[in-house]
Amino acid sequence: MKKWIAFGLLAVSSMATAQTTVDAALAAPRIDVRSWLRMSPADYGCFTEKTLGYRDTRFNCALKGYQNRGDICKTPDAYYEGPEFPDRLATEVHPLATHVVLSWEHGNLQAVSITLKGTWSEAQVRQAFHLPRAAASKLSVAEQKAHAWPQNIMDTDVQYPTQGQTAVTLIGFDHMGAADVGCGEGG
């Protein structure tokens, strides 16, 4: 009987802890990542150097007159060039962040994805990161203004890559790859 009572108390204690986690508010990010979208690699690199003390070897405050010279069909590596975000600095963005991925295209930050510890509802993520509910691309201009959707953000997404993780992605513009422009097709 003592085993059943102990098991019952453990189960009630576990449920209370789980409920607290569900009811807890997700903290806001320490840095407003919404402003990063559509930045050039040079501007972003200078921002991280000044804000986080992280100096990328190429994309930093000393880089002047940067122009992306990549061509999606001929020089895709240059087309997608830009700095990476070091995992060791992820908690500088958000206290629960473990990984930040930056996607660069034609000289601008196309998307940023942040992986957080814990399973957070979409509503909690949107509230913490100050993101509107509907995608800007699905709203009229008047609705975008009414919902205060940032002009540099086209869409957002919240996903759950593995148990105990939440990923929030902010998209500045549609991805355009080689297949989208017909690279390699007769010509």
Rank of each mutant, 00 (worst) to 15 (best):
A11D: 06
E105T: 03
E92I: 00
F7H: 07
A25M: 06
A27G: 04
V125S: 06
I5H: 14
E81G: 00
P132L: 10
T91S: 12
L10S: 13
V100Y: 09
I5V: 15
C73I: 01
F47Y: 13
A6F: 14
Q19M: 10
S40H: 06
K2E: 15
R133S: 13
L109H: 03
T20W: 15
K50A: 08
C61S: 01
W104T: 01
T98W: 06
T115Y: 11
A123H: 08
A42E: 03
A123R: 10
K74W: 00
T21E: 14
Y66G: 03
T115S: 09
T91V: 10
T48C: 05
Y79E: 04
N60C: 02
Y80Q: 04
S13Y: 01
A111V: 07
C61R: 02
K117D: 14
A97M: 08
Y66K: 05
T98H: 02
D43M: 04
T51A: 15
K3A: 14
G118Y: 01
Q110L: 08
E84C: 00
D71K: 12
F59A: 00
A123E: 13
D32L: 02
V93I: 15
M39H: 00
L131W: 04
D87E: 09
S103I: 07
V93F: 02
P86L: 04
R133L: 13
G107F: 09
R126T: 05
H99P: 01
W36D: 00
L116R: 04
Q127F: 01
K50W: 06
D23C: 02
S113R: 12
Y66F: 12
D32W: 08
R55E: 12
H106T: 10
M39V: 00
G8H: 03
W4M: 14
L52K: 12
G65S: 13
L116T: 05
R126Q: 11
T48K: 10
K50Y: 07
S13G: 08
R88N: 13
W104A: 00
Y54W: 13
L52R: 11
Y54F: 13
L89G: 07
A97T: 09
W104L: 02
A11N: 07
Q67F: 06
E92R: 13
N68R: 10
P76I: 00
I114Y: 11
L26W: 03
D77P: 08
V93E: 02
Y54I: 02
S121E: 09
Y80N: 07
D43A: 14
G70M: 04
E84N: 11
A24Q: 15
S121F: 11
C46T: 05
T91D: 08
T119H: 10
A62F: 08
D87Q: 06
K117Y: 07
A62M: 05
V100G: 02
M39W: 02
K74M: 07
R126N: 10
H130M: 07
S13L: 10
V101W: 07
G107V: 10
